[in-house]
């Protein structure tokens, strides 16, 4: 049982890491979209963020998974059951990250922009060299919260039968000669340990960024 759960955990981890790899940068793009002076883009982004934050992730996963076939009559090639989870998680988490980034960026003193301005930094340089590094440091605690939530949210992939650890645990628990409740206990230990590792890594990142202030 532990072996099977460990094997299914690979998918849990994949959902986790692919979501972060996609959503962390996409969140920045969403932030820029929201700040854009190009009105349609700004509106689109705001609607997108409010939908992502205003509806359950489980529902979003199901919509992303079923909509292509049922609404648009497309068959998405490849392992869409898994990809749909990744797509849904990325666009959901990007919305949350965008709001966190916004908070981080808006908390930076205007004097930083003015100093960069006077020193001749361009808009892009100012953002990349001056604002972004300070923002990253400021958002680490909030991002840590989201990342820990993400570990637990991976179990929502079971809504469309994607076999990650939680789906597997449910299957094992009802299989003949199964250890029953013990399965969930073991799965719980997996999640807990994984989150402990995540918390440790985030703490290290926070520490690495605390060389100033």
């Amino acid at each position: 049982m532990v072996g099977e759960l460990a094997y299914a955990f690979i998918n849990t981890f994949l959902i986790f890491i692919l979501t972060l790899l996609g959503a962390l940068p996409l969140g920045l793009a969403v932030y820029f979209g929201k700040k854009s002076r190009f009105r349609p883009l700004k509106w689109f982004t705001e609607v997108y963020i409010s939908i992502m934050r205003g509806t359950p992730l489980m529902l979003q996963v199901m919509v992303i998974y079923f909509a292509p076939a049922l609404v648009f009559n497309f068959t998405v090639p490849g392992n869409w059951r898994f990809s749909a989870v990744i797509v849904a998680f990325i666009i959901n988490y990007a919305a949350y990250f965008a709001e966190i980034y916004r908070g981080g960026i808006e908390s930076i003193d205007n004097g930083q922009y003015e100093a960069a301005h006077v020193l001749g930094y361009g808009k892009a340089q100012t953002f990349v060299k001056i604002i972004l590094p300070q923002m990253v440091k400021r958002v680490v605690p909030a991002v840590t919260n989201e990342v820990i939530t993400l570990v637990k949210d991976t179990s929502l992939a079971s809504a469309i039968g994607t076999v990650e650890m939680f789906t597997k645990a449910k299957q094992i628990a009802v299989s003949p000669r199964s250890p029953g409740m013990l399965t969930f206990l073991v799965a719980g230990v997996f999640y807990f340990v994984f989150n402990a590792v995540v918390a440790f890594v985030m703490k290290r990142i926070e520490k690495a960024l605390s060389y100033y202030d």
Binding site: D109, G111, Q112, E114, A115, I130, P133, Q134, K137, Y212
Partner: peptide, 9 residues
């Protein structure tokens, strides 16, 4: 500047 505005990082 009055408030220096050095880059803290």
């Amino acid at each position: 500047f009055q408030n220096f505005n050095l880059f803290p990082h």
